[in-house]
Design a binder for these strands. Structure first.
Lengths: 148, 148
DNA sequence: TATTGTTATACTCTATAACTATA
DNA sequence: TATAGTTATAGAGTATAACAATA
């Protein structure tokens, strides 16, 4: 493997990092303008799109320890965006369920989030986006596989 | 603009985020194995490749407030990887300069970092990497422009 | 007056460990 | 015994504001 191949990989890493960072700066600011941090948005998005979830599973999906989940869920519950619901069949389990207010909030927020992203990515044609999606998907899956 | 275009952009955002996250999990672990966090690696990399820098400018380049820069530079100085050098022509200014030990450290670390990345990206052919570089570079630059 | 860097302080987020209650 | 969630606690990293030295 040549030195040029190494440099090419480094270059790809740099442009990938920069593109990701540039997008995140915009989306994180958007979340913050609406009183959320990225973790909180991730939780609300999960509950909004996938329905109520046991706290444990939320922690697994967004990679957060149980004590940290309690903290995040507390904050969102205090703001009225979700509520805790006991599981009748297993009384150890608590679901987080998005409230009416939380649903309204996400119905407003999520399409705006999508449009922000669409605008940020507008320099690429639909064909270029398909190409990028294919390459990045292959890359992401491959790296996940390598990690196991 | 159609709903499908919006969904395509969302999809691109998701695969981009995931690929980036997958890479960062590996590189951050690599940094941590060598006693550094990503910010500290970024500072050392800057000094290693671009030479000594006024503290203020380091803060600008890696987006850190002046009080936080003092904290990071303190930590790296205590480990012997850099030292503070007064600027003779403007006595308000302090440079951070990488030491011999820091240089040796980076001469060992950086090629290993590059090889790790190369392996992580090995699922893509050189041609695919060139395509990805071109698209992501265009994307990153365009978003930066949109922010101003 | 403006700028550089330091100090002191506080805050946010996350992890860990001990605990309670269920299973 | 094992699991779900809470509580208490600690730590890392960052930001802010007040400050001293210098321009």
């Amino acid at each position: 493997m040549s030195n040029n191949d190494i440099k090419q990989s480094l270059k790809l890493y740099i442009v990938l990092s920069r593109a990701n960072k540039a997008i995140n700066e915009v989306t994180n600011q958007f979340f913050q303008d609406h009183g959320l941090n990225p973790t909180e948005f991730a939780v609300l998005e999960l509950l909004h799109h996938k329905g109520r979830q046991p706290l444990q599973q939320i922690g697994n999906k967004i990679l957060l320890a149980s004590g940290s989940i309690t903290y995040v869920i507390d904050k969102l519950e205090k703001r009225g965006y979700l509520e805790r619901v006991s599981c009748p069949s297993d009384r150890r389990v608590t679901f987080a369920e998005i409230t009416e207010a939380g649903t309204e909030f996400m119905k407003e927020l999520f399409p705006e989030h999508e449009e922000n992203l669409h605008e940020l990515l507008s320099v690429l044609t639909p064909e270029e986006k398909d190409t990028a999606i294919e390459l990045l998907k292959k890359l992401g899956l491959s790296i996940k596989d390598l990690s196991y």
